[in-house]
Design a protein around this nucleic acid. Structure first.
Length: 591
DNA sequence: CTAGGGTTAG
């Protein structure tokens, strides 16, 4: 029946998952250290078979004091006492205590001893398989379930949908889902999270719509999945609808739902609403605080992020790696160099957290943008971790900012080794040379790019008006179809020039992160979306999303447009938000 | 009695 299932060998690399363990269902288990050897020896010496009750007690005490029971020995010594119920309990205990590889090992032992699994074996063991990201093992357990006739058990099927989803096989999850005769709300939730886990957010929302259409009533967990999808898509209209749905249907705003709501509003650029949800929440945990801190950081409210952090510390909450990342990022986006240095050292000294590569990256960005490139270099040399491509790219970006050609070349050569096909790197070094007007070097980079076949990513922007999303790609002014918008843009350009707009052509000439050359600057996708928004909406705030970073020229253009056309413009680009109001941007041009 | 949940630099 499952002959069409794909193998899962690639999932770990495609989705960036780290394969933590590899377990084969037929592998011999390693002998574990035996914590209660004497007790077992006594039992063995007495020659009496141990009864199930004593065995479970033994397992329990062993798990609670050592975190595990000597599984293989138990199976070996006491196999006569072991039946399916005992195995199920053992699997569940291991799953609950996050000892997933042992849970799977128990299942493997069961199969070896020919103890037939029952309908409650599969859900528990599959949960562990999912958390171990072992799609291959999951598939073989799925085959067992089919052979043993558990194809219509909804618990098993739901666990399988979840397992395939978590293991990076959302298509298999969906295919299986379609074959399940009696799906319930948990089955639907599993399919939705299959998609969110695999960054297929539109599909997740489609499934949610289908779920509503089929008459299944969503619950809190459903909302968390769909809200997460809305966050990633920047779908504010959709997200608000979910929020309304929660209120109207009296679903609880528990800590999961609340955190997901804050994140949704933050990632859709509505920071005020995000804050409101936070203030009305009863129970908050570290996730909630972290989400609010990075909400402020990405929306250009660095001070608020730091104040939130202080509030958190006052409440005696212990910050974690994500918290520190949020505050460092806030400092970075606002140029708070001194504050960033202080936080970085308190991370280690006060909070006892060992910085990860991301924290170093953030510090290098902060120092680099601030012009402290030598200090950034010192950090790179002093860190125990091997600098990755992102570290070097961040440094290269700072070199462009401050015209440090030599150091830039150094970083670029590191990048050529680490990721020779990433076009961004070529663009950055090309811009370093452009600034210094070293046209020979610029030409060389160009050639290197062409010969390596590196292509630019097309820019695409979208704007949501009255529940519809309109997408724009950088357009060719000679093509027909967008006359209205093109005419509007020409008018805007003339208007804004009166307010001081000067098209910036130099950088754009070689920047593949932006769509078009000099004469086409005016047809950048975000400008098209803005013109469309101004023409077709009278809302005070226009929200635009872009798949790449906003370019320098558009940034200037939008600032002036916010003043001339008296609108707030919120742009979410691939990195962060820009809130344009009255001729200024929340990023204070520091990005 | 067993299945489903939120955050992360450039």
């Amino acid at each position: 029946m499952k002959a069409s299932l794909k193998t899962s060998t690639q999932f770990s690399s495609i989705y960036g998952f780290r394969r933590a363990y590899t377990i084969s269902a037929s592998v011999d288990l390693p002998m574990c250290e035996v914590p209660d050897q004497r007790h077992m020896n006594r039992q063995r010496a007495s020659g009496k078979p141990i009864d199930q009750f004593s065995l479970m007690k033994l397992i329990d005490s062993s798990i609670s004091s050592n975190g595990f029971a000597p599984t293989s020995l138990l199976f070996h010594e006491f196999s006569r006492s072991i039946d399916v119920n005992l195995c199920n309990t053992l699997i569940r205990r291991y799953t609950d205590s996050k000892n997933h590889s042992r849970a799977v090992s128990v299942y493997a032992q069961m199969r070896k001893l020919n103890i037939l699994p029952d309908s409650s074996t599969f859900p528990s063991v599959l949960k562990s398989v999912a958390l171990l990201w072992c799609g291959e093992v999951g598939k073989s357990i799925h085959c067992n379930a089919i052979q043993l006739g558990f194809t219509s058990d909804v618990y098993t099927n739901t666990a399988l949908v979840h397992m395939y989803g978590i293991c990076g096989q959302p298509d298999d999850a969906h295919q299986l889902f379609d074959e399940i005769p009696d799906r319930n709300v948990v089955t639907w939730n599993s399919l939705i999270t299959s998609y969110t886990h695999n960054r297929m957010f539109r599909e997740a929302i489609d499934v949610f719509r289908e779920m509503l259409a089929s008459g299944v009533t969503p619950v809190e967990v459903t909302m968390v999945g769909v809200l997460s999808a809305c966050s990633h898509l920047g779908a504010l209209g959709q997200g608000k609808w979910i929020h309304d749905y929660i209120v109207k249907n009296r679903l609880r705003v528990n800590v999961y739902v609340g955190t997901a709501l804050i994140d949704m509003y933050a990632k859709c650029g509505d920071i005020d609403e995000a804050k409101k949800v936070f203030e009305t929440m009863g129970l908050k945990n570290i996730y909630t605080w972290n989400v609010l801190i990075s909400a402020y950081a990405m929306n250009g409210q660095g001070e608020a992020a730091l104040r939130t952090f202080d509030r958190m510390i006052e409440k005696d909450l212990k910050p974690d790696h994500v918290t520190l990342l949020g505050v460092l990022c806030a400092c970075c986006h606002q140029g708070f160099v001194e504050e960033g240095r202080r936080l970085f050292s308190s991370m280690i000294n006060q909070f006892g957290l060992q910085p990860k590569i991301v924290h170093y990256g953030c510090m290098i960005d902060l120092l680099g943008r601030g012009g402290f490139l030598d200090e950034a270099m010192e950090i790179i040399h002093s860190m125990k971790l091997k600098p990755d491509a992102i570290i070097w790219r961040t440094l290269l970006g700072a070199c462009r900012f401050h015209g440090r050609e030599e150091l830039g070349e150094f970083a670029f050569h590191k990048l050529l080794e680490l990721e020779p096909t990433n076009g961004e790197n070529y663009v950055l070094i090309s811009n370093v040379h452009t600034q210094k007007k070293k046209w020979t070097e610029v030409g060389e980079v160009r050639e290197l790019m062409d010969s390596s076949g590196i292509k630019k990513i097309p820019g695409c922007s979208s704007i949501e008006l009255e529940n519809a999303v309109y997408e724009f790609k950088a357009s060719d002014p000679l093509k027909t179809g967008n006359e209205e918008i093109h005419k509007m843009l020409q008018d805007m350009k003339n208007q804004l020039k009166l307010a001081g707009y000067v098209p910036e052509t130099e950088i754009a000439l070689y920047d593949i992160n932006e769509e078009e050359k000099e004469h086409n600057l005016i047809f950048h996708s975000e400008k098209l979306a803005l013109a469309f928004g101004l023409l077709h909406s009278s809302e005070p705030t226009l929200r635009i999303m872009k798949n790449l970073r906003i370019c320098q020229d558009c940034h200037q253009f939008f600032k002036l447009a916010s003043a001339v056309y008296k609108r707030n413009i919120v742009v979410r680009d691939i990195k962060r938000f820009h809130h344009f109001t009255g001729g200024l941007c929340s990023c204070k041009d520091y990005w």
